[in-house]
Design a protein around this nucleic acid. Structure first.
Lengths: 213, 213
DNA sequence: TAGATTGTTAATCGATTAACAATC
DNA sequence: TAGATTGTTAATCGATTAACAATC
C-alpha cells in the first residue's frame, strides 16, 4: 500500500474540515465549492484544494465537492472505519468527562474498560462500564486485547503504565497527563494533549492584548 | 510599549520551554546550554536561541542560560504576573477536573466563580467555591469584574453566553465546547481546545501505522 | 588566554498562495 | 457552448537550520 507521506500541517486541518462538513450535511446542504468552504473556515481556497488533493480528487470541475461524500472520505482518511478497542486509565472527573462526551463510536473507538487505583471507585459504573482496579489491567488486556489507551492519571504514574500497556499490545495513546510521553518504539503513536500549555497560550494572548492590541 | 510581533510558531513552543525548565529547576540544575536543552526537547539549538532572542538576550556567551532566570522570564512573557479574575461556566465533570488540576494560581488565573444552569448543583462546593445559578452571572460580573471565562458547557449555549460575557467585560475565553468560537471583537482573545480534533488526529496516526509504519 | 556558547546573519527548506490549463 | 470550479504547477512567503563572529 504505502500512501505517500502527508505533512502534519495538512493532517491538523482535517478534523476542522470533517467537523464543518458534518454541520453542512446536518443543515441539508448538498454541495460546496472550495471558495465557499474557505470563506467559512478562514482558510484560502487554494489551501483546501491542495490539502484534499493529497488524498485524491474528491471534487468535480465546475461543480465543487459533494458534502456528504467528502465528509465520508475524510472520515476514512482519519481512520474512523478501523475499530479501535480502547481502555481508559483513571476514573476521575476528567476521565468521566472524556468517557461521556467524546463521541467515540463515530470515530471508531470502542471503550471496553475503565481502570483506577482507588479501591473505593471499583464497581461503580461509568457509561455502562464497571470501574476495575488497576491491578487487574494485565489480566483484562490479555483477554480483550485493547489497541488504544487514554491516560487520565497524574504524571507520576504515566511512564510505567504506558510501558506496561505497550507490552500488552497497546499501540496508540491519548495522553492527558502533565507529562510528555515520548516513546522510542516506532510502532507506537502518541497524542499528547497538555491542557496546561493551552492555558499558558491563553495567558500570553491576554497579556499581549494589554501590551499591544 | 508595543513589543514587536512574535509569530505563533514561537509562542506555541514557550509553554514547552517553561515546563521543562521548571523540571530542571526542581532537579536543582543551575545552568543549561541551548544544545543540551535542544537534545532534551527534540528541537534544534538554533531554534531555541532564535526563539528566545525574540524576547531578549537571556543567555551569556560561553556559559549558556541560567535555568531559574530563564524560567522566570518565560513566565513573564507568558503573562503569569498579570492577575486574571476568572469564571468557570459549567460545573460538570470536565469543569471540575479543570478547576482542580490546572494550576491556575501559578499562571496568574484566579478562579472567583463557578456557574451552572442545573438547579440541583447550586450550592454545592468545588475547590472551595459555591456553584451559582447561571441566571446570577450578570449580577456577579457587575460586582466582581472577571476578565477571563472558561467555557465547559455544550455547544448550543456557547455563542450566547460568550456574547453576554463580552458585554460584561470578559476579554479572554478558554473554550472547551465542540464549537469554534470566532469573535469579531478585536479586543477579545480565544483559545479553542477541541479535544475531539485531538482524538481524530490520534485516530489518523493509528490508521497510518496500519497502512505504512 | 583558550574554550565554550551565545546572538545574529545568511542559506535552506517547506508550506502557503497565486495562476491557469483541464474539464465538468 | 459558456460558465464554473477543480487539480496542479509555479511563485511567494515564512519558518527552520546552519554558520560564524562576538564575547563571556
Amino acid at each position: 500500500m504505502g500512501k505517500p507521506y502527508v505533512s502534519s500541517s495538512v493532517i491538523k486541518r482535517l478534523p476542522r474540515y470533517y467537523r464543518h462538513l458534518g454541520e453542512l450535511k446536518a443543515e441539508g446542504r448538498v454541495r460546496i465549492s472550495s471558495v465557499e468552504l474557505a470563506k467559512r473556515l478562514g482558510f484560502t481556497a487554494s489551501q483546501i484544494r491542495q490539502d484534499l488533493n493529497c488524498f485524491g480528487g474528491f471534487g468535480q470541475q465546475g461543480y465543487g465537492y459533494n458534502i456528504e461524500q467528502l465528509h465520508y472520505e475524510i472520515g476514512n482518511i482519519l481512520g474512523f472505519k478501523l475499530q479501535k478497542k480502547t481502555v481508559l486509565i483513571g476514573a476521575g472527573n476528567l476521565a468521566r468527562a472524556i468517557a461521556l462526551h467524546m463521541g467515540f463510536e463515530a470515530k471508531g473507538f470502542q471503550l471496553i474498560g475503565i481502570f483506577d487505583k482507588k479501591e473505593s471507585l471499583v464497581g461503580e459504573t461509568v457509561k455502562g462500564l464497571p470501574i476495575r482496579h488497576i491491578d487487574t489491567l494485565d489480566e483484562f488486556c490479555r483477554e480483550h486485547f485493547p489497541t488504544t489507551a487514554i491516560l487520565c492519571i497524574p504524571k507520576d504514574g504515566v511512564k510505567s503504565v504506558a510501558e506496561q500497556l505497550i507490552h500488552l499490545g497497546v499501540r496508540g495513546f491519548w495522553n492527558f497527563s502533565h507529562y510528555d510521553l515520548l516513546i522510542d518504539h516506532p510502532e507506537v503513536v502518541v497524542e499528547n494533549v497538555h491542557l496546561g500549555d493551552s492555558l499558558m497560550r491563553l495567558s500570553y494572548k491576554i497579556a499581549d492584548l494589554e501590551n499591544n492590541g
